[in-house]
Design a protein around this nucleic acid. Structure first.
Length: 548
DNA sequence: CGTGTTTGACCTGCGC
DNA sequence: GCGCAGGTCAAACACG
């Protein structure tokens, strides 16, 4: 054996090339040999690199080869795989984003296109509406002499309305001649009324119709033994009021004093409940508060003063008036100035007329029962849409006024609608009355409300809209917020109120109640807008308070 | 003279 | 039962 270890080692090292010496290379000088004879090592490595199996074992010690990877590209797979995955993922995301972006762009374009269409439709509608308003104004101007007609002539016209008027008279006839048709439940929910239909519909759901249709039930009830009120009292009062015909009796039933009005009782049958409701409805009142210098507002009816009293708590006397347009008409009204603000005239209407009315007074007359019916039932068969639609124009007119405040109250003793039409003196359009030939002393706000639309007066945009809605079972609901959009969109004034009204409240019955009541109270305004021949029936009162 | 208003008396309901 | 307040009546009055 070679005594020199180096030799031995060398020998061993020389055996590397044979495959058996590799181990000996790792001996003492192994590192040096690697460092000093890098070429040798490289050679060895080169040789080993030429062997795929050896290389695999050497390079990684990890089995990174996938079954799908060939030996030739195994290196690239091991080094670039994760990055490419991320890259692909990002690319996919980019593609998706691009698709989404394209979709958004497409939707945006579509939206713009639809918006344009909507604007066009709105513009068309507005132009058509303005055209209609212009036409109506033109007709109003042609018919202005009607303003100077007498009340009796007006009544005659109302009576002949179906032949002479454009629907308003028809509505009158319907209301008074065919109550059976006009039950609110008969109204077709799905038909959108045209202008004529709108009036008729308004008439159909009018309280007078409710009352008269239920008067039929009164007759049958009277013939039965279940009459829930004191017939003796009725007879006595009947004699007292000089009413002797059946119609008067019917009418008088509605004038039962509060104590005779039956209370609601769940144990009573439906007919009785209806009867009781009717009594309440007929007894319902409408109070109109208006800032006026006249002693009495002109409402289209003829009144005779039958008494005057000093009511407690108010230094201003209360005057009592009775409708004299027909014998035995049960309608009364009280006129009194507000104690707090004597410029405010409070007019309270009660009962319903038993005779045809001039259009100017038609809606006013029907207010009482309408309001009460809405208030008391809260579940009338008329839909909210009816109220809104039938009151559409009327509500527009009301809400376009400088200030309006409507309150429905079913508090005892009578359901009462209080319509506050007072507004600041600075907004009072005095000139309108002179222009129309009215008495200079007549400053009823009905006319100020009606004039801008009916006669094309410009509006200054200083509108305030507010409203309260409530009843016995429903606390007052402040509609100010809901009505605010109306105020904001008053130009043009016509199209916004109905839309806003449609979204007034989640309780459609009360929306309808409000609109019906308001429209009834100022129905002459709405009639003026809708029916040109009937429109200008606005005249000064025949009764001037000497105290003022 | 007819129509509408005034006004004191009367009736009625309600609260005490 | 009494008093009060709201509502109504009807005679007297005013007016055109």
């Amino acid at each position: 054996m070679d005594p020199s270890g180096s030799d031995h080692e060398h020998d061993i090292s020389t055996e590397i090339s044979d495959g058996k010496r590799v181990v000996s290379e790792m001996d003492f000088f192994a590192n040096n040999a690697h460092r000093s004879d890098f070429s040798t090592a490289n050679t060895v490595e080169k040789e080993s690199l030429e062997l795929p199996e050896t290389r695999l074992q050497f390079n990684t010690g990890l089995n990174l080869l996938t079954p799908h990877s060939g030996a030739g590209n195994s290196s690239s797979i091991v080094n670039d795989g994760p990055f490419k995955c991320i890259k692909d993922h990002h690319k996919r995301r980019r593609d998706e984003l691009a698709v989404l972006q394209a979709e958004v762009d497409r939707i945006y374009v579509e939206n713009q296109r639809l918006r344009g269409m909507l604007n066009q439709v709105n513009n068309n509608y507005n132009s058509l509406h303005m055209h209609l308003v212009v036409l109506l104004q033109g007709q109003n101007n042609n018919l202005k002499p009607l303003v100077m007609k007498t009340e009796s002539e007006t009544v005659n016209e109302a009576s002949e309305g179906p032949r002479k008027n454009h629907g308003g008279g028809e509505a009158v006839e319907r209301q008074f001649m065919d109550p059976g048709r006009s039950e609110i439940g008969d109204v077709d929910d799905h038909s959108l009324p045209t202008s004529e239909e709108e009036r008729s519909l308004g008439c159909c759901i009018s309280p007078t119709n409710i009352v008269e249709s239920m008067d039929t039930q009164n007759k049958s009830l009277k013939s039965s033994s279940t009459v829930p009120f004191d017939l003796k009292q009725i007879e006595r009062d009947n004699r007292r009021h000089g009413r002797d015909n059946e119609g008067s009796k019917q009418a008088f039933v509605g004038c039962l004093p509060p104590s005779k009005v039956p209370k609601f009782d769940s144990s009573k049958d439906v007919d009785e409940q209806k009867e009781e409701t009717m009594s309440m409805i007929r007894k319902a009142r409408v109070q109109v508060r208006a800032r006026t210098e006249a002693s009495m507002s002109s409402d289209g009816c003829q009144w005779r003063k039958y008494g005057q009293k000093l009511a407690k708590g108010n230094p201003c006397p209360r005057a009592y008036y009775r409708c004299t347009m027909a014998t035995g008409c049960p309608v009364r009204k009280q006129v009194q100035r507000c104690a707090e603000d004597r410029t405010i005239l409070m007019t309270t209407y009660e009962g319903h007329h038993n005779h045809p009315l001039p259009p100017a007074a038609l809606s006013m007359a029907s207010t009482t029962a309408a309001a009460a019916a809405m208030l008391l039932s809260g579940s009338t068969t008329s839909s909210a849409d009816h109220g809104i639609m039938s009151s559409n124009t009327l509500a527009r007119t009301l809400f376009s006024g400088p200030s309006s405040f409507a309150t429905l109250s079913a508090s005892a003793p009578f359901p009462t609608v209080t319509l506050d039409l007072t507004h600041s003196p600075s907004n009072r359009p005095h000139a309108h009355h002179h222009q129309l030939g009215h008495s200079p002393n007549f400053h009823h706000n009905f006319t100020s409300l009606s004039l801008p639309h009916a006669f094309g007066q410009s509006q200054n945009g200083q509108f305030k809209v507010s409203g309260l809605l409530g009843s016995q079972s429903h606390p007052q609901i402040d509609l100010s917020h809901q009505l605010a959009p109306i105020q904001a969109q008053m130009s043009p004034p016509a199209d916004t109120v109905s839309a806003a009204a449609a979204s007034l409240t989640s309780d459609p019955n009360f929306t309808a109640a409000l609109l019906a009541a308001i429209s009834s109270v100022i129905g002459n305004v709405g009639t003026a807008n809708n029916n040109c021949k009937d429109s200008p029936i606005i005249r000064s009162s025949t009764s001037i308070d000497n105290n003022t």
